[in-house]
Computed example of a mutant assay.
Amino acid sequence: MALDRIDLADIHAPDRLATRLHAQLGPVTSAVPIVEIALGLDISDVRIDNFDGFEGMLLTDRVRSDGVILANCRHGDQRARFTIAHELGHFLLERHEVSSETGFRCTTRDMRETREGRRELRQEAEANRFAIELLAPSSMFDRHLSCDPHLRDVQHLRRALDLSGEACIRRMVERRDEPLAAIWSHEGRIRYSIRGDGFPHLAPKKNDPLPKISQAFDVVSKGVRGITTFRETHAAAWTHRPEIELFEQTRVGRDRHAVTLLWADLSPEADDEDDGALPELGEPGFR
């Protein structure tokens, strides 16, 4: 694959860098060929294998004349694709400073980093931003979204973009206009969570049990696998805003791993001219 690395020089914003790279690629009709892209940009080798102690590694020198990417496939090939894109971001973002004499070594936590405080956190956040913009640009991602949020979209996105379910959910929460949040849990305890713009702060924290009055607690406790429908839930179970309307949907997978999608209705109160009619109950439609 013939790509021009010079054309990508001096671009320090990760989203702009990914956009410029897509301009070189032209139309992409299937999953983004991340290994071929890396090899076309002075990465001499990409090794995908079961590694211990790290999710990804970029072996390079301080001037990054060339490099080797190692990606852990222990959590699946789709997760490894994101890791390769993340390490390629470190390679191309020229302001990133190597973390050791041999380059960059990234952990599972780094792959979820969104903070931009310290330099190390900012670099990991920027590499993640580059990776998702490269692998799931809005032009390819948004076409697979339903009219209303739904976890079934994740299944279509995984197949179309060859991305992990977690990456697809994170991108969905970010791309959709509705105030959304997602909570990942295992055996009834919260592992981590994200929330989109406008969604209230989440009350439960990492390692807390799922709220007992939530739909998630009910289906996880029963071991019911699959995707539930959206149902209205107690806002106080998940947020510090008991007055809002909140809807909840959960997907339970193997070994009691689950992800819960929350959809908040933050629309203003109806004005006095409203006739007071209540909408029919069912899946929420806030548009």
Rank of each mutant, 00 (worst) to 15 (best):
A2W: 15
A2H: 15
L8E: 04
D10L: 15
R16Y: 00
A18S: 13
R20M: 07
L21S: 02
H22W: 10
Q24K: 08
Q24E: 08
P27M: 11
S30T: 14
I37T: 03
G40L: 00
D52R: 15
D52H: 14
E55L: 02
M57F: 07
L58E: 10
V68G: 07
L70S: 04
N72V: 05
R81N: 14
I84L: 01
H90K: 13
V98L: 09
S100Y: 01
E101T: 13
T102Q: 06
G103F: 02
R109W: 06
M111L: 06
R112W: 05
G117W: 08
Q123T: 08
Q123A: 12
A125P: 03
R129H: 02
H144L: 11
D148E: 09
D148T: 14
R152W: 01
V154I: 15
L157K: 04
D162W: 08
L163H: 02
E166W: 00
I169H: 06
R175K: 08
E178N: 11
P179D: 11
G188F: 04
R189E: 10
R191A: 11
D197L: 11
K205D: 11
L210C: 10
Q215G: 05
D218W: 00
S221P: 00
K222A: 14
V224W: 07
R225I: 00
F230V: 01
H234T: 06
A235I: 01
W238H: 10
T239W: 04
H240M: 12
E243T: 04
G253K: 12
H257M: 03
L261H: 07
A264M: 08
D265S: 13
E269D: 10
D275P: 13
G276D: 09
P279E: 03
E283V: 02
R287E: 13
R287F: 14
